[in-house]
Amino acid sequence: MRKRGKIEGKYYIVIFFLVILVILGLLIYLVRDERRTSLIEQVLQDSILFVQKMVSAPIHFVTDKLSESKEKNDIYKKYKELQTRVEQVGSIETKNKELESELQEMKTLLELNQTLSESTPISASVITRNIDGWYQTITIDKGVQHGIAENMAVVTGKGMIGEVIQVNNFSSTVKLLTSVDENHKISVKIEGNEGYIYGLLSDYETGNQVYKIEGIAENTEIKEGASVVTTGLGNTYPSGILVGTVTQVKKDHFDLARTILVKPSVDFNEIRYVTVLKK
């Protein structure tokens, strides 16, 4: 009897590890970004987010009013700034025409899939963010019913913030650029002295809150403060969306290439309203 009990104990250990393996395998399948959400998930998420929106509406109303009154104090200053810009409109229009013809040439040369001007913007507001630490996502209040689909680029007035990874009927989940890693590199170009320098956004340093672009050739000259924009290569991000500005150019560990640190143009703590670029 004793021996039999011992054998059963061994089986339990094997079964336990098998169960763990099955659970891990299941989780690997379920946490993929490409996974399509089931109808039950969509309905549940939409309904809970609706309640969430209702509950947080009065709080947002009060905070919005407070920030509005703060902004009102600066309104005269902003008006003066706008007046100066209006005077510059004429020259900007001429420059625009020139740029448009250049853009057409570039598109033919680079075989770009799409540019910013070809996207239809859809405005959305953020219902919730995940601040648990690991998951850099936000949920917006527009979904399939509003024309949103997976892999669409999401921007704010200040620049690029991420892409849509999951769509429900009335809400969508956006993966932020802060979750960029070795497996999800984003093609960008940096303003250099002799035209643009192409690179890949490969990491986000949470401590310094900067993106990292690695593998830039040693002989290229990049100044601090240079703009970093998307290239339009790949299927998600249209060309020309601001990602950030260069804050530091340093040599890599092997002294062979340069690593560029880029300060995001968007304050990820202040994302309340976004624009989804419909392809």
């Binding site: 299941l26 946490v31 970004d33 996974r35 998951y135 996502t137 999951q166």
Partner: peptide, 9 residues
């Protein structure tokens, strides 16, 4: 479902 998009985790 609501916050993490990592079903069952």
């Amino acid at each position: 479902i609501v916050y993490t998009n990592t079903l069952f985790l």
